[in-house]
Computed example of a mutant assay.
Amino acid sequence: MIKFEETSLEFKRLPYGETFFKNATGRCSNGLLMIDFIALSAGLPLLKPYKEAGANFTPGVNFAVAGSTALPVQTLAAMNIASSVTTSSLDVQLDWMHSHFNSTCQIQKGWIK
């Protein structure tokens, strides 16, 4: 079962994903995104989202979140800009990436192995 990033978006429900993926995907698309076409044409696998429970991240991992912003929601709120789509701004996604790297990479003598 896919664990979606907590959001109020409709993207985590059908019909999003039903045509190509045959289930709800949490994507802002019913099918493939441009990055998927690029990956497929290069012979690369589609990357699983970081929040997908039990996903195989051996070929890579996708930290992107639909509707996310570059600035944190606190910064936007201070400028009276509402961001009701998600609270996972770029800094949250980078924190996920940092945590993932720390849990999967070994640091030895200053080099990542």
Rank of each mutant, 00 (worst) to 15 (best):
L9S: 06
K12Y: 02
D36M: 08
Y50W: 12
A78H: 08
E52C: 15
S83N: 13
E52W: 15
Y16C: 02
I112H: 07
P59D: 04
L9Q: 10
I81G: 06
P45M: 07
T69C: 05
T87V: 12
D91M: 06
K12R: 11
I35K: 10
P59T: 05
E10W: 10
E52F: 12
T58Q: 07
G60S: 14
N80Y: 15
I112L: 10
G60Q: 12
K12A: 03
D36W: 08
A39C: 12
V65S: 10
M97D: 05
S29P: 00
A82G: 03
Q108G: 02
G31V: 04
A42S: 03
E10S: 07
N30H: 08
S88R: 07
T58I: 05
T75V: 15
G17L: 05
A82W: 11
H100Q: 07
S29F: 00
P45I: 13
F63C: 06
P59M: 03
D95L: 09
A66Y: 10
F101D: 06
R13C: 10
M97H: 11
A24F: 03
G17Y: 05
C28V: 12
K48Q: 08
K109Q: 03
K22L: 09
T19N: 13
A53T: 14
G60Y: 14
L47H: 12
C105M: 14
